[in-house]
C-alpha cells in the first residue's frame, strides 16, 4: 500500500487514540500487574493453592470445557444446517443465533434459573422423568455457559463453511468417493481449524463469564463456585490482595488462550489461502 503525504490528521488521530487507549484501558489494566508486585511469591501461592480457590478453578475449567464441547457439537450441526439446507424460517433462526450476544447476561441468568430450577418449566420435567436436577448444581453452570458460548462457535464456523469450495467435494465424488468418505476426508479436515478456533473462543468466554452463571449455579463453595465469583467474594471481604492474585492468574490464562486463538486463526487463514 503506497502512502502519500496528502492524507491529513495523522498526528491528532494517533495522539487521541493513544491517549484514550492509555486512560481507559492500559492504565486501569496495569494496576492489576502493579498491585500484584506488592504480593510476595509466598503470599501469592498461599492464595492460589487455597483449597476453595483451587476448587473454584476446577469448577470453572470443567464446566467451561463441557459447555464448549456441547456448544461446539450442536453449533457445528446448526452452522451446517444454516449454510447447507434450505428450510422455512431459516433467516429468523440465523438471526436468533446472536441472541446471547445481545441479551444482557443478568437476564439470561434469571431466565435460565426459572426454566431449570426443580419446579421450573423444564426443571419439573427433568426431575420427574429422570430425577435430574440442573439448577443449583454444576450442571446448571454448564447450561448457562452453553447458552453464552453457542454464537461464538457458530459465527466462527459459519463463514468458513459458506466459502467452502465445493469443487473439492465434486472432485472427490467424481473419483468415486462415498458421501461418508467426502465428509470425513474432505469436509471435516477443512473445517477443523475453524472448529478449534470456535471451541477455544467458546471456552475463553465461558471461563470469564459471571452474570448468567451466578443465578443458576447455587454458588456452593467447593461445588458450584466459579472463579469470577471467588474474586467478588474476596473483594466483598476486602481481601484485595487475594482478589488480585486470582484475577492475575485468570488474566494470564485468558492471554494464553488469546495467543492460542490467534495462532489457530492464522492456521485458518493459511489453510484457506492455500486452497
Amino acid at each position: 500500500m503506497s502512502q502519500s503525504n496528502i492524507m491529513p490528521g495523522f498526528r491528532p488521530t494517533l495522539a487521541f487514540t493513544l491517549l484514550y487507549l492509555g486512560l481507559v484501558v492500559l492504565i486501569p489494566l496495569s494496576t492489576l500487574v502493579f498491585k500484584s508486585f506488592q504480593l510476595s511469591w509466598e503470599d501469592y501461592l498461599s492464595v492460589i493453592t487455597n483449597d476453595r480457590v483451587v476448587a473454584s478453578f476446577r469448577v470453572s475449567f470443567v464446566t467451561s470445557l463441557a459447555a464448549a464441547a456441547v456448544a461446539s457439537l450442536f453449533g457445528f450441526i446448526i452452522a451446517w444446517v444454516l449454510v447447507r439446507y434450505p428450510f422455512p424460517g431459516k433467516r429468523l433462526f440465523d438471526a436468533l443465533i446472536d441472541l446471547p450476544f445481545a441479551l444482557p447476561t443478568a437476564v439470561a441468568g434469571i431466565v435460565l434459573a426459572a426454566i431449570y430450577q426443580p419446579n421450573g418449566y423444564i426443571g419439573t420435567l427433568l426431575t420427574d422423568m429422570f430425577g435430574l436436577q440442573v439448577a443449583y448444581k454444576p450442571l446448571g453452570i454448564v447450561v448457562a455457559l452453553i447458552f453464552i458460548s453457542l454464537p461464538f462457535f457458530v459465527r466462527t464456523v459459519e463463514p468458513v463453511l459458506q466459502e467452502f469450495d465445493s469443487t473439492m467435494e465434486e472432485a472427490a465424488s467424481s473419483l468415486g468417493a462415498t458421501r461418508r468418505q467426502v465428509f470425513v476426508r474432505i469436509i471435516l479436515p477443512n473445517l477443523l481449524p475453524a472448529s478449534l478456533t470456535g471451541f477455544a473462543l467458546a471456552f475463553a468466554r465461558s471461563v470469564g463469564e459471571y452474570g448468567s452463571v451466578i443465578f443458576i449455579a447455587g454458588n456452593l463453595p467447593y461445588v458450584s463456585e466459579i472463579v469470577p465469583l471467588m474474586i467478588i467474594t474476596k473483594l466483598e471481604q476486602y481481601e484485595y490482595a487475594g482478589a488480585t492474585a486470582i484475577a492475575l492468574t485468570m488474566l494470564v490464562i485468558s492471554f494464553l488462550l488469546l495467543l492460542v486463538i490467534n495462532l489457530l486463526q492464522l492456521w485458518v487463514r493459511k489453510r484457506s489461502g492455500q486452497l
Binding site: 489494566l29 471461563v207 470469564g208 452474570g211 469470577p228 465469583l229 474474586i231 482478589a243 485468570m250 488474566l251
Partner: peptide
C-alpha cells in the same frame, strides 16, 4: 479478552 469481573476489579 478480560473477564467482566476483572474489568470491574481494576477500577
Amino acid at each position: 479478552s478480560v473477564s467482566p469481573v476483572i474489568s470491574g476489579l481494576i477500577f
